[in-house]
């Protein structure tokens, strides 16, 4: 839902980041307002997953330039847990297994960390169980998964549902979903997409990172951005995704070459809308 007067939730300016001294993000610009659904598309290695990790504060990535503001405040200064507590959520492409840590306890501690940051009282085990059972409906997840260790032995689809369940509990303002569609069969994809749609509201925003159109058939984005070589190459409406679906990514290479040439002349990064 596009509403030009809605407050800006996330403001990314000329963001540059490296991993092991290897530059990956080379100047990303993106503005996300409340109520919007953005999709970032691109090939493997284009930097789209890096963008999500940097926003969530993964320690392996070093920010080498630019800024990110979350509701007007510097985001990059914050520890990963603090980012989560104030409402930034990353749905992982490959959620890790954490043997020994009970899923239910994990969800409760995380939910309470977010609640107390927002000035809400922490939920005791009983109140939390009520809440979690209600939210399980969003992803149609079997309550048996609560008794198991975090993601341990979960199938790919179960892990992704567990991610969306966390999103449903943490009620983020900005949810970044990194390749949430990968490894899902069509039924699981429908459930996950249904969950995301259900959680979207005029107050929050969603950033989908994906390779394929098929997720966007189920979650309609307001904006689509194409990433390549660490930059957003082109932005547009949902029709851009459909165009990509038709033409593939080949034009990206041509455009990259053109930009490289232009960049040499002007010395500045291409501009985006949004």
């Amino acid at each position: 839902m596009i509403c030009p007067d809605a407050p800006v939730l996330l403001e990314i300016r000329d963001l540059q980041a490296a991993v092991d001294d290897q530059p990956i993000l080379k100047g990303v610009n993106l503005t996300i307002r409340a109520g919007e659904i953005h999709a970032v598309m691109g090939r493997n290695g284009s930097g789209k997953s890096t963008l999500s990790k940097v926003l969530a504060g993964h320690p392996a990535y070093t920010v080498t330039g630019g800024s990110v503001h979350y509701r007007g405040n510097d985001l990059l200064d914050l520890a990963p847990e603090q980012r989560a507590r104030i409402g930034l959520f990353l749905g992982f492409q490959y959620p890790v297994e954490i043997p020994g840590v009970s899923n239910l306890e994990f969800l409760r501690v995380a939910t309470n960390a977010r609640r107390s940051e927002g000035g809400l009282e922490e939920l005791d085990t009983f109140a939390f169980e009520d809440l979690v059972r209600e939210r399980l409906e969003v992803v149609k997840m079997d309550p048996a998964f609560l008794e198991r260790s975090v993601n341990e032995g979960f199938s790919g689809g179960e892990k992704k549902r567990n991610e969306i369940l966390q999103m449903a509990l943490l009620e983020p303002l900005v949810a970044i979903l990194d390749e949430t569609d990968s490894g899902l069969d069509i039924d699981a994809l429908r459930i996950v997409a249904g969950g995301v749609n259900q959680l979207a509201s005029p107050e929050n925003a969603t950033l989908l990172i994906t390779h394929y159109q098929r997720l966007l058939d189920l979650i309609t984005p307001d904006y689509v951005h194409v990433m390549a070589a660490g930059r957003i190459l082109r932005s547009g409406g949902r029709e851009l995704a459909l165009e990509l679906e038709r033409t593939g990514y080949d034009w990206v290479d041509q455009e990259l070459e053109r930009f490289a040439a232009e960049g040499q002349q002007t010395g500045r990064a291409p501009l985006e809308v949004g």
């Binding site: 520890a79 847990e81 603090q82 507590r85 020994g100 840590v101 994990f106 995380a110 940051e117």
Partner: peptide
């Protein structure tokens, strides 16, 4: 990082594991 990205502090994450 996974636990931290869900708002769980570093020390608490260690202690949980």
């Amino acid at each position: 990082f996974y636990l931290q990205s869900r708002g769980i502090g570093f020390e608490e994450a260690i202690s949980m594991m």
